[in-house]
Structures are given as C-alpha cells and as structure tokens.
Amino acid sequence: APRTFWTVGLVQFFCWAAFLYMWTYTPGAIADTVWGTTDTNSEAYQTAGNWVGVLFTVQAVGSVLWAVVIPRFKSHKTVYVLSLLLGAAGFISTLFVTDQYVLFISFLLIGCAWAAMLALPFTILTNSISGKNMGTYLGLFNGTICVPQICAAALGGLILPLLGGHQVNMLVLGGVLLVAGALSVGLVKETYAEKEN
C-alpha cells in the first residue's frame, strides 16, 4: 500500500475513536452537565437522551453546511486540519456548556469534523493510487473505520474510571483525539498517481 494509505489511516484512527466515544457517552455526559443527573432511571436522564437526538441532527446540519465550504479550500490538508480542530473545539466545549441550546454550537462544530472525515480521507487516498489497485485499497481502507472503533470500545470501560467516571470527560478525550488526528495530517503527503483507463 502507498504511504498515503498508512498516514491517512493514522488520522482515521484518532477520528473514528473520537466519534465512537461521542456516540457512546453523549447521553450520560449531557445528562450530568446540563440536567444535573447521573440516575439512568430519572426523567431528567431520559429527557437528556431525547435531546441527544436533536444534537445529532444539529451535527448533521453542520456537516452539510461545512461540506459546501470544504471544496473552496485549495489544500485538502489545510481544510482537513481546520475541520478536525473545529470538531475538537466542539467536543471539548461540552465540558463547559450547561445550557442545552448552547450545545447546538458544540455540535455544529463537531459536524465540521464529520464532513471532513467522510470526504477528505477517500479523496486524498484515491488521488494517490492507480485505477488498477483502487478497488482493493479502498476495500482495505474500510478497516481504518472499524478497527479504531473496536479499539475504542474495548478500552472505553477502562479509561472512564481513570477520568473520574464522568462521561463528559470521554467527550473531552474525543476532542484530544481529534487534535491528535489534526497533528497527524502533517504526516500525510498528497500524491497523484497516473490514472489508468
């Protein structure tokens, strides 16, 4: 596999681990920080869980809006780094937000990272490989989506107690992982393979 496969795969590792933690820990995190409860049987916790659906919708809207902006950048790497850093800010901000509506800002920013994750890795990779090998490499590249989530899921239960047992700290960790992903973009060297007919 070309070097680009492995370096973009490293970025993917950090990003998909971060989003696994978001999907897993957002309900408990905002129940604690916004509704002030960790009691999973309480009405407030259920309300928080319902609100997560709204927040994930806001994230999707942010993703669509940012997807319109991404092509305006000449450098894939520049917009990749910017997108991941915006997402990191969204993740980390959840630690400080106590208003359910202010969380819209956090999840709009997270949507920026999501848009970049869905588009840029495959764009950078397909530019670097020839038509002859593209199907094989793209198939293998899907492993850079599932492997990090498997690792994150396996380690999450061990990490949570180390972070004080507060689920919002797992979202902060997700932000840190996105920063690591943004830094890893610096290792990616964009190449353009000669395409075969």
Score class of each variant (00 low, 15 high):
residue 70 I to D: 09
residue 196 E to M: 13
residue 46 Q to N: 13
residue 107 F to M: 11
residue 8 V to L: 05
residue 185 V to H: 00
residue 6 W to N: 03
residue 120 L to D: 01
residue 147 V to F: 10
residue 132 K to L: 12
residue 163 L to C: 10
residue 173 L to Q: 00
residue 80 Y to T: 02
residue 147 V to I: 15
residue 114 W to D: 08
residue 102 V to H: 06
residue 155 L to Q: 12
residue 160 L to I: 08
residue 122 F to G: 02
residue 124 I to A: 02
residue 84 L to T: 06
residue 167 Q to I: 00
residue 16 W to C: 02
residue 187 L to N: 06
residue 32 D to T: 10
residue 66 W to H: 05
residue 63 S to W: 03
residue 85 L to M: 13
residue 32 D to A: 14
residue 61 V to W: 14
residue 89 A to E: 01
residue 16 W to D: 06
residue 182 A to W: 01
residue 118 L to Q: 12
residue 151 C to V: 15
residue 63 S to H: 05
residue 88 A to V: 12
residue 87 G to M: 08
residue 103 L to N: 05
residue 192 Y to P: 00
residue 101 Y to I: 08
residue 196 E to H: 08
residue 120 L to Q: 00
residue 24 T to Q: 14
residue 96 F to N: 00
residue 9 G to E: 01
residue 113 A to E: 05
residue 13 F to R: 04
residue 112 C to M: 15
residue 160 L to V: 07
residue 194 E to W: 08
residue 90 G to D: 02
residue 151 C to Q: 03
residue 16 W to S: 10
residue 86 L to C: 14
residue 119 A to N: 13
residue 13 F to A: 14
residue 61 V to A: 14
residue 22 M to C: 14
residue 3 R to L: 00
residue 95 L to C: 04
residue 78 T to E: 10
residue 37 T to Y: 11
residue 46 Q to Y: 07
residue 49 G to V: 09
residue 81 V to P: 04
residue 12 Q to F: 12
residue 18 A to N: 05
residue 169 N to V: 09
residue 116 A to E: 12
residue 156 G to W: 02
residue 183 L to K: 08
residue 165 G to P: 08
residue 171 L to H: 02
residue 8 V to M: 10
residue 158 L to E: 07
residue 5 F to Q: 01
residue 80 Y to H: 10
residue 136 T to L: 08
residue 92 I to H: 09
residue 67 A to N: 11
residue 188 V to F: 06
residue 131 G to V: 11
residue 184 S to G: 13
residue 192 Y to T: 13
residue 56 F to Y: 11
residue 183 L to T: 04
residue 168 V to E: 15
residue 10 L to Y: 02
residue 182 A to D: 03
residue 20 L to I: 04
residue 182 A to H: 02
residue 73 F to N: 06
residue 108 L to G: 10
residue 128 S to D: 01
residue 79 V to A: 09
residue 180 A to V: 07
residue 146 C to F: 11
residue 92 I to P: 06
residue 53 G to E: 15
residue 100 Q to R: 12
residue 5 F to E: 00
residue 57 T to S: 15
residue 115 A to M: 11
residue 62 G to S: 14
residue 57 T to F: 15
residue 139 G to M: 06
residue 197 N to L: 14
residue 97 V to R: 03
residue 139 G to D: 05
residue 29 A to M: 07
residue 172 V to E: 01
residue 63 S to I: 02
residue 35 W to N: 06
residue 22 M to I: 10
residue 80 Y to V: 00
residue 32 D to V: 03
residue 39 D to G: 13
residue 119 A to S: 13
residue 186 G to A: 14
residue 69 V to M: 11
residue 193 A to P: 00
residue 64 V to I: 15
residue 127 N to E: 09
residue 157 G to S: 12
residue 121 P to D: 04
